[in-house]
Structure formats: C-alpha cells, structure tokens
Amino acid sequence: MLPAEMRSVAAIVATWVLPGAGHWLLGHRVRGSVLLASIMGLWLLGLLVGGISVIDHLKPLDEEWRMGRDRPTRARSFWYYGQSLVAPSLVVHRFHMARQAPEQPLAPEEAIDEPRMVMPSFAHGYELGQLFTAIAGILNLLAMIDLLWRVPAGKGQAAPGSTTGGVRRRPLSSTSLPSADTVPEAAGTRDQRSQTTQAEAGQEHVSPKDDEVGPTSAPKPQEPPPTGEAQANEQRRREGEA
C-alpha cells in the first residue's frame, strides 16, 4: 500500500492524464465519473467545434500565419497553458503540429502524396474551441487540487458520525503531512469548516500555523479559542472595567 503522499501524487498524475481518474483511484467513483464526463465532455466539445487546430502553443497573428508563414514571429498563446492541464491536449498538439500546412508551398505532385493537413479554424469556432478546451483544463486543475485534501474512500467516509466525505483536513506537505490513516476527521464539511468557528472545531481545527508544526512536535493541549461573540463579551467586560 502506498503512503498517503504517494497516493495523492499518483492520483494527481492520473487526473492530469485522464480527468476523474484520480478520484476513481481513491475510491470516489461517482465523483470521478462525473468529473470525467463533465471535463472530458467539455474538452471534446471544444475540439469538435473548433477542430484540433484550437490547441496550439502559438497564437495566430494574421492571415500569413494561416498560410504557414512567419511562424517564428508568433507569440505564445496564453490559452495553451490552460489547455495543457489536460494531458491529451499535448497529444493533440503534437498531432496538430505534424499536420500543419508546410512552410513552403508544395509542388502539385508532392501535394498529392502529402497526408491530409489540418484545416485551421476561424472566428467563433476557433474562439469557442479554445475557450472550451482551456476551461476544461482549469476545471481539471480544480480536480487535481481537490485530490490534495481528499483521503481514499473508506477512510474518511466510513467512520461513524463522520461528515467529511473523504476530505482530508490539511493540504499535502512534504514535511508535515501525516498519514491519511492518522488524520482525525474535522468537525464538518469544508463548507461547514469555513463557516465554523474555531471553538466549534475545538482541538481538531487546523490553522495555517498548524501546518508549520512538524509531525514530531508534541501535541499541545488547546483551549477552545473564543468565538466572535465571546470576543465581543470580553471587550465589553474590559470596557466596563475601564
């Protein structure tokens, strides 16, 4: 069995290769299937609308580019960074580069033997294809980030009374992340945790400062920190004393 860090890294790589695969590997199969359908569906729709020419690491400058000229002068495309967050985009990009129009026009007899070239897309089709594939990549980044917090199914979810839905309490850290098996479950979902006061979370609350503490540090007994209301009462009491 891989340690928690390796599992997370493997799941993230799997998600990059195929969206949803990381969640599937961790046992969250419904989530993985939904992510696969939504992200890959969007990515494929973008390719269908704009053709594979929408995945290009260089942005089109003008009509000269479409004829295969002045390629070195083109600027890098910002969209490609988003598109590359889904690994199949890199394969499509390689294929696109191999099937672009040649730098120099071919003689008619050579053009007959030339493999079918990719037809560049224009206007709305190009823009929508680029947008859809880039958004699919950004959604995949969201899924990869989610894997940093998610423990395998059966560990976070199986605990009776647990409401975390397999969500780890602290992000992956090379120095301070304990095993997923040893991480106690937090006092609610991430939604709830973001709204939960520190007092409600009690000793299980994880602040950014807690991540700086190494796993060898002795756990310090903590008092429940005051809530906003408690702080207001304390302030009123001090004002009264003054």
């Binding site: 390719l47 609308v49 704009g50 053709g51 020419s53 897309s121 089709g125």
Partner: peptide, 8 residues
Amino acid sequence: PFMEPAGI
C-alpha cells in the same frame, strides 16, 4: 470530426 472545425 475533430480534424476540421464544425460549421455550426
């Protein structure tokens, strides 16, 4: 499909 843009 996919090789060429779709005319929508």
